[in-house]
Write a protein that binds this DNA or RNA. Sequence first.
DNA 1: CCGCCTTATTGAAAGGTTTCATTGACGTCG
DNA 2: CGACGTCAATGAAACCTTTCAATAAGGCGG
Lengths: 339, 339
Amino acid sequence: MAGGARSASVVDVAAEAGVSLGTVSNVLNRPERVSDKTRFKVEQAMARLGFVRNESARQLRAGQSRLLAYVMLDVANPFFTDVAQGIDAAATEHELSLFLCNSANDAGREAAYLTHLSQQRVQGILVTPVDPYSPLLEEIVKHTPVVIVDRTRNDHRFCSAAADDVAGGRLAVEHLIDRGHTRIAYIGGPPSLGQVRERHEGALLACREAGLAEDALLHIGTDGLGFADGREAGERLIGIPAKRRPTAAFCANDLVALGLLQQVSLSGRTVPDDLAIVGFDDIDFAGAAAVPLTSVRQPRRELGRTAAEALLDEASNPDHEHRQVTFTPELVARRSTVT
Amino acid sequence: MAGGARSASVVDVAAEAGVSLGTVSNVLNRPERVSDKTRFKVEQAMARLGFVRNESARQLRAGQSRLLAYVMLDVANPFFTDVAQGIDAAATEHELSLFLCNSANDAGREAAYLTHLSQQRVQGILVTPVDPYSPLLEEIVKHTPVVIVDRTRNDHRFCSAAADDVAGGRLAVEHLIDRGHTRIAYIGGPPSLGQVRERHEGALLACREAGLAEDALLHIGTDGLGFADGREAGERLIGIPAKRRPTAAFCANDLVALGLLQQVSLSGRTVPDDLAIVGFDDIDFAGAAAVPLTSVRQPRRELGRTAAEALLDEASNPDHEHRQVTFTPELVARRSTVT
DNA sequence: CCGCCTTATTGAAAGGTTTCATTGACGTCG
DNA sequence: CGACGTCAATGAAACCTTTCAATAAGGCGG
């Protein structure tokens, strides 16, 4: 880092180059209006002084930045990084930069990021919220375009892009029932997550429609939706006496499913013979597991791209109307349920 | 978004509350110096006007932000998200926010992010660079603390935290040689990545030390270090006539190894009997694959945390000295190489 | 050779916050 | 009752850039 000297400003550059500060600014912003000779002088001066434009001052004057941000629930979950890539693609096309923020499923962190971003006057914020009905979101959307990703609010106060989690849960369990299973586990948590609740709801629906008994669906709760949670749930599942033990499991996401798969394999059991497994999200690792995982596919990149495009419309189109896009998920059957 | 009205400033709040703007600022920054009654009035006024502090102006005056950024090579690679979590932990302890930027292995994107961040006057930048010797990095480190993650420069112009990739590559191949393999593939690319080159170098070293023939190590190049690249390399590998085909593969990272594993399994072959596989990084998915993957472990979170701490020292300690921390990787043997 | 037009450059103002030296009010002590 | 000390509130200055109306210089046609 530089020693003590304050970093050079346009005024310093102007003095060094022997021109006015307006000219320096022109070199920066409208180089075509400056004669070659002058521009050269100014560029030399900038190089000598190590001038770095101050983005804060620039933005203060300009009032806006060319910046988008995505506040994601879990940066370690490939589902969200894929969504982020979709957002990134759209942002790049519009020559905007994207910052990623990891709330790590913590409402406090999420709030801090949202506040900071709105104070930073970013063009817009995409967020997969811990709680889509948080009052802070309503507060922020008054000033800054906000689009909700992977969740939907049924008032129409936000744009959103999400998959139909109820339908997805239903698909998964219908598939298991089709394959003859009548004792099925639903594995996931915490229930504070809408994703967990809705996928469960879909699972229940499928059971009901198939006329299964009330207790056909066994809910095994987990603390989170990571790998370790899946393994731990696996242990508990294996601990259940064989005659009562479910013959199939539907996991709230693929990380949990992969953890479960691993635990079951380690215990010497076979998937799908001893336990059939369905995941959710269809991340790349699902299809690539050595027992490829049946999963409910969400269009991950598409989700991100759609959300980003809605955001850009909200940010630039004066008569923008909020829209809630819902994607219908799709079952991808693989060996973890099919012999 | 709000209608047409410009968003309220401290001046507007002051007028609304019937106090001076200095008082509003005090409410914001030193609430204890303001009488309860006045503070209440001001807070009411803020709420009525929907005041949102302008971070640009604040920073312009303050000169600094409480912001760190990590420019990562590939947000879709769990290795880097784990590193990011380590950075995040350290940042959180110091009450700093962390922004993540995905360069996606593109030097142009990396440059754009680095420039933007330094103009934004962030406290510091962590970066896993496409090329650690890029002149732009040297330029930026003159003004903004920069720490290199997962790479090292051997001049001492930057702090860095990285694992010893040569040693890692050597470990991997020594392990394979120990298990009796004499025809080994090294799978990875592009060679522009230091990680790819150095792990290869380590592999060569191991071969040489074991006295294997020059052509014992077959280099199979890939375009990148993703899943798909591993699968594609798998096809090529399988295409080699059995008697010349390597009996083991060392992959430049776990994503490639998992792709390879999948392709080999799909072709009806068995790991490790038909092909032993070693990966690199030991991401969670490696141990969790149904044929658990032998891998070279890097202390991922530790790497991030160490880098972040070096950065914080550089940012706050006037007589900071650059240090290059190198971690020694460790082989984790699992079933993909051990029957 | 003058007036006009074009092109290049100028300098002041604005943008919203924080800081700090100063003022004002009020209570207390001598 | 006056001087002093404390606490609260004030408002001007500074941070750095961009914009824009105004000026200066230079070239051309008449």
